[in-house]
């Protein structure tokens, strides 16, 4: 379970597989031991992918994602940034980026000591001309970083892919927000991209990873809130045997 060690305005500290981690309200995760900042599911150029099929979403998602990413990178100033897969919405996403956004991304990548692209299902071959290294997965101490959760994975897995979000029941209404999902052994990161939707942590796909509804750290406007599974509701009730 999440043990709340200390609370700052922007991030919530917790332990996973013996490492101390910080969940940032932007949706990024900081690992101080390795001076590494992890972000997942950036989905660059999702907007233009929809435009191609006739839905003209505002073409600013890449720029907005870059802006938010730039902000948290500047604030934390880590040596290393790790993008945990599905950084690009599809294989030619990088080709559709505007010259300006491309330049902005390159500058961001090159300003770090290390930048690592983990392969995702949307971007099995991340572009090589933007700088950074490409890995399928990565180990940091007890932590294993990969895009998709693996069945029966050992303690310490950090992944993305599922875009967890939590619906928190309040008095008479509920709030639905992006969230980190964890059971203390494994962690699923929220999606960072500006247009990426969320999947409720009560959904089968996420419950299957943990064997139960996980605890969550919900991204609030000002801070990250640790919330227990008892407070969560699914998007839709399913009939369960009681």
């Amino acid at each position: 379970m999440i043990r709340q060690l200390e609370k700052s305005a922007d991030q919530l500290s917790f332990e996973l597989a013996g490492h101390r981690l910080f969940a940032h309200r932007s949706g990024a995760l900081f690992v101080p031991e390795f001076d590494a900042l992890i972000v997942s599911d950036l989905h660059f150029e999702k907007g233009s992918a929809y435009a191609r099929s006739g839905q003209m979403l505002p073409p600013y998602d890449t720029r907005e994602t870059l802006r938010r990413l730039g902000e948290v990178v500047e604030q934390i100033d880590p040596a290393c940034v790790i993008a945990l897969g599905d950084s690009f919405h599809d294989l030619d996403a990088a080709g559709r980026m505007s010259v300006e956004d491309r330049g902005g991304l390159k500058a961001l990548v090159n300003a770090r000591e290390r930048w690592i692209w983990i392969e995702g299902n949307h971007d099995p071959e991340p572009p090589e001309d933007l700088g950074g290294e490409i890995h399928h997965e990565l180990r940091l101490g007890n932590l294993v970083l990969r895009h998709e959760p693996e069945a029966g994975a050992a303690r310490g897995e950090i992944c993305g892919h599922l875009h967890p979000c939590a619906k928190v029941r309040g008095k008479g209404r509920a709030v639905r927000r992006f969230a980190f999902a964890t059971n203390g052994d494994r962690l699923i990161m929220p999606a960072f991209g500006a247009y990426t939707g969320g999947l409720n942590v009560c959904d089968d796909a996420i419950v299957a990873v943990f064997g139960e509804v996980p605890s969550v750290m919900v991204l609030g406007r000002e801070q990250v809130h640790a919330i227990s599974p008892r407070q969560l509701v699914p998007d839709r009730y399913r009939t369960r045997t009681r």
């Binding site: 928190v168 309040g170 008095k171 609030g220 809130h225 919330i227 407070q231």
Partner: peptide
């Protein structure tokens, strides 16, 4: 600010 306070309440409960 009802929305944020729902999150805060829920989080307080956990604490």
């Amino acid at each position: 600010e009802a929305q944020e306070s729902i999150l805060e309440d829920a989080s307080q409960d956990l604490i």
